[in-house]
Simulated scan of single mutants.
Amino acid sequence: MNNSLIIALDFPDKKKVEEFLPSFGNEKLFLKVGMELFYAEGPSIVTYLKEQGHDVFLDLKLHDIPNTVKGGMRNLARLGADLVNVHAAGGREMMEAALEGLEAGVGVGEKRPFCIAVTQLTSTSETQMSRDQLITVSLEESVCHYASVAQQAGLDGVVCSAHEAKMISERVGEGFLKVTPGIRLAGGGAGDQKRVATPKFARGEGASAIVVGRPITQAENPLESYLALKNEWEGVLL
Rank of each mutant, 00 (worst) to 15 (best):
N2I: 14
N2R: 14
N3G: 02
S4P: 00
I7D: 03
L9P: 02
P12M: 04
K14N: 06
K16Y: 09
V17K: 03
E19M: 06
F20A: 04
S23Y: 13
N26Y: 12
K28G: 05
L29M: 13
M35Q: 01
M35R: 14
E36H: 10
F38R: 07
A40I: 01
A40Y: 02
A40P: 03
A40R: 08
G42H: 08
S44A: 15
T47R: 14
L49Q: 10
K50V: 05
E51C: 09
H54A: 01
F57V: 08
L58A: 07
L58S: 09
D59S: 07
L62V: 07
L62A: 12
L62I: 09
D64C: 11
D64G: 10
I65S: 09
P66Y: 07
N67R: 13
T68P: 03
V69P: 06
V69W: 09
G71E: 05
G71F: 01
G72I: 04
N75Y: 05
N75M: 10
L79R: 01
G80R: 07
A81I: 09
A81F: 04
D82C: 07
D82F: 10
D82M: 10
V86E: 01
V86R: 03
A89W: 01
A89V: 13
R92N: 00
R92G: 00
R92V: 03
E93W: 00
M95L: 05
A98M: 06
E100G: 02
E103S: 05
A104T: 01
G105M: 03
V106F: 00
V106K: 01
G109F: 04
P113Y: 05
F114E: 05
A117M: 02
V118G: 02
V118F: 02
T119M: 02
T119R: 01
T122N: 04
T124I: 07
S125I: 11
E126N: 01
Q128H: 00
S130Y: 01
R131A: 12
D132W: 08
Q133N: 12
L134E: 07
L139S: 03
E141I: 02
C144I: 14
A147P: 03
A147T: 02
S148M: 15
Q151M: 14
Q152C: 08
A153I: 04
L155Y: 07
D156C: 09
G157I: 13
C160M: 08
K166C: 10
M167V: 06
I168D: 01
E170M: 11
E170Y: 06
R171H: 11
P181N: 05
P181H: 05
G182P: 07
G182R: 07
A190F: 05
G191P: 12
D192G: 08
D192C: 13
K194S: 14
K194M: 15
K194Q: 15
V196H: 10
V196C: 15
A197C: 10
P199E: 12
R203G: 02
G204R: 08
G206I: 04
I210T: 13
V212D: 11
V212P: 12
G213S: 11
P215D: 13
I216T: 12
Q218S: 14
Q218A: 14
Q218W: 08
A219W: 13
A219E: 11
A219C: 14
E220P: 06
N221E: 15
E224D: 14
Y226D: 07
Y226K: 10
L227P: 04
A228L: 11
N231H: 13
N231V: 00
E234W: 12
G235P: 03
V236R: 15
V236K: 15
